[in-house]
């Protein structure tokens, strides 16, 4: 094929990736809008190993070429992820768009990536000779900068199986369908014996990468709801100080206000 390589298996794709300068192509919904000239695509959409959703003791394992529609129809995929997926674009885009593509495009607006950040997902990356597992927040080095070597492919997303049931998800866009996130928010709460064991908050589409401040989250861990309510003002101040947002289609001030409101709503929802 001119300007393209087809691979029937992951091993074959990794072999091509190690020898040729190629752009990995899964669903095409971002790449074809970009329409770079003179590139050679490595077509991954039909590789069986990348199209599966499996689970083990710890993780739901979503193949990089799994489409959003496929994930929405799979019982193993957690409700929080589905909340985000069902608001991505429209059916024809969800039929083509993939988890690997959403990650590989490197945008902080990627709605599935926000959920991967808030749920401490990990990514399995492979090259011909080795593979490694990386935390999703370490994978993003900056705007459109990824910790992915020229001979590596994203193979699967490892999403924790438990602890994702109590959540908030909000997407603020310009319209109901076909909307790009202007601000997106996901939060996960958990408690045991009356003490907070998880209070994760992630913000999408407002900076170069998804934002999450684990050190601020830690100030709430182990606290009772009463104690957390007392700490709330200081906790929110911490976010207000740290969040330096970029100007996009809407102003940075508007985005920050929306982020703080959504964070406040999330705390209130779980009694803080």
């Amino acid at each position: 094929m001119v300007n393209g390589y087809a691979a029937a298996s992951l091993a074959e794709a990794l072999e091509i990736r190690s020898n040729q300068k190629v752009v990995p192509y899964a669903g095409g919904t971002d790449l074809m809008v970009e329409n770079r000239s003179g590139v050679d695509y490595l077509f991954l959409g039909k590789i069986p190993e990348l199209r599966n959703i499996n689970e083990d003791d710890e993780y739901i394992r979503i193949g990089a070429a799994v489409t959003f529609t496929q994930a929405l129809e799979d019982k193993k995929v957690p409700a929080l992820m589905k909340e985000a997926l069902k608001r991505i674009a429209a059916p024809a885009i969800r039929n083509a768009g993939t988890f690997g593509g959403n990650l590989g495009n490197g945008s902080a607006k990627a709605d599935s990536v926000l959920i991967e950040f808030v749920s401490d997902a990990r990514l399995r990356l492979a090259s011909r000779d080795k593979e490694r597992i990386v935390d999703v927040d370490k994978f993003y080095l900056g705007r459109k900068k990824l910790d992915l070597a020229a001979d590596e492919l994203i193979v699967e997303i490892l999403l924790p199986r438990t602890g994702l049931d109590r959540y908030s998800y909000e997407k603020v866009g310009g319209r109901n369908a076909l909307a790009i996130s202007r601000v997106s928010f996901a939060g996960i709460f958990d408690e045991r014996d009356g003490r907070i064991t998880k209070l994760a908050a992630a913000f999408g589409a407002v900076a170069d990468t998804v934002l999450r401040y684990k050190d601020l989250e830690e100030t709430m861990l182990g606290k009772t709801l009463d104690e957390a309510r007392e700490l709330k003002e200081k906790y929110l101040e911490g976010y207000a100080e740290r969040m330096v947002l970029t100007q996009g289609r809407v102003s940075a001030e508007y985005r920050k206000k929306v982020c703080m409101n959504l964070l406040g709503d999330f705390l209130a929802k779980f009694g803080i």
């Binding site: 074809m32 024809a92 039929n95």
Partner: peptide
Amino acid sequence: VLINSCCVAMGAIEG
């Protein structure tokens, strides 16, 4: 499956 043909490269439809 419904797909926007503007977002598909020819190599992706082999077969």
